[in-house]
């Protein structure tokens, strides 16, 4: 049985111009100790899907319209704010894209981690601080005791992200949501951060939801992958199956866009067109205006989800 099972999640934003269906019927499973990668362009609803799980979207204008998110058999979407606070940090925790702004600038890193620990465990200030130093050691920050006394502005971007991971992991959550954890960092640091998340995954059996728009990051870390396009799941399955045998034209396109260093000089492939306006999505399949294999039905009706074993794709090509 999967640890987290999300079914038909729908999060809409009611704005002045109309309703933005940021997440529109997304389903996925997260297995214990595995990594699920969520890929998609900006605005495809990756982050909103994750934040909806713990109701951390602004409500209003946001609204979770429907769906289910079963964690250990408990539906997160029906929990009250009070019950949700027991889930946050303890069961699900999160690291963010921009480590620069994810820490409170007025408190030392150690204090912030210690505060969080004290929020969850009955320990005194000193013990909490010691635990914070332990966590900083675990994320391989050099001279952790010194760094615990540093303010966020005294750390580099990579160090801040490590500190953020230490903060998020300080209460050993079952699920770690990593929202583009490496996007704001340079490539070498990126690799270190991803490795670190992987290490925690192995050590504590934490399940990871890795949100990214970088296909390379997904291939190196994820077990399963879900591709999203304007609020909808287009393809989902085991990483090898999806990458070796992509079904949906969008996934095919994304994979073609990866820069390969095969010697000769050819132009980087790009996908024509833009993501549609989320308020005014095209009729039928949202991807149809950009699709190279468009059929007439694609413009009329929403595609069904077709199963190929555990690998699924929402496309008329296979219906």
């Amino acid at each position: 049985m999967p640890l987290l099972s999300v079914r038909d999640l729908k999060t809409y934003f009611n704005v002045f111009m109309g309703t933005v269906k940021a997440v529109d019927g997304v389903s996925f499973d997260l297995e214990r100790g595995k990594t699920l990668g969520i890929v998609g362009e900006s605005g495809s609803g990756k982050t909103v899907s994750c934040l909806s799980l713990v109701k951390l979207i602004a409500m209003p204008p946001g609204e979770i319209v429907g769906g289910q998110a079963l964690l250990d058999g408990e539906d997160l979407l029906t929990l009250s704010e009070k019950e949700l606070r027991k889930v946050r940090g303890r069961k699900i925790s999160m690291i963010f894209q921009e480590p620069m702004t994810a820490l409170n600038p007025l408190f030392t890193v150690g204090d912030q981690i210690a505060e969080t620990i004290r929020l969850h465990q009955k320990v005194n200030k000193k013990e909490a601080f010691e635990k914070a130093v332990e966590m900083l050691t675990a994320v391989s920050i050099p001279a952790p005791r010194n760094r615990a006394l540093s303010y966020p502005h005294q750390l580099s971007g990579g160090m801040k992200q490590r500190a953020m991971i230490a903060l998020a992991m300080s209460c050993h959550p079952q699920i770690l949501i990593a929202d583009e954890p490496s996007t704001a960092l340079d490539v070498t640091v990126q690799a270190q951060i991803l490795l670190l998340i992987d290490e925690f995954k192995k050590k504590y059996g934490t399940s990871v939801i890795l949100v990214t728009h970088n296909m390379g990051v997904i291939t190196s870390t994820a077990d399963d992958v879900m591709v999203m396009y304007v609020g909808k799941m287009v393809e989902r399955g085991n990483i090898y199956e999806v990458f070796n045998n992509p079904k949906h034209p969008y996934t095919v396109g994304l994979l073609e866009c990866i820069l390969k260093s095969t010697g000769g000089k050819h132009a980087l492939k790009t996908m024509p067109g833009f993501i549609p306006n989320p308020i005014n999505k095209p009729k039928g399949c949202a991807f149809n205006p950009r699709c190279s294999r468009r059929m007439s039905i694609c413009m009329a009706e929403e595609p069904p989800v077709v199963e190929f074993g555990k690998h699924v794709a929402a496309c008329w090509l296979y219906a």
Binding site: G89, R90, S93, F96, L103
Partner: peptide
């Protein structure tokens, strides 16, 4: 709207 507020909420802060 700052990220560290969201991060704090994520870590259970009320």
């Amino acid at each position: 709207e700052m990220t560290f507020i969201k991060a704090a909420q994520m870590m259970k802060a009320g």
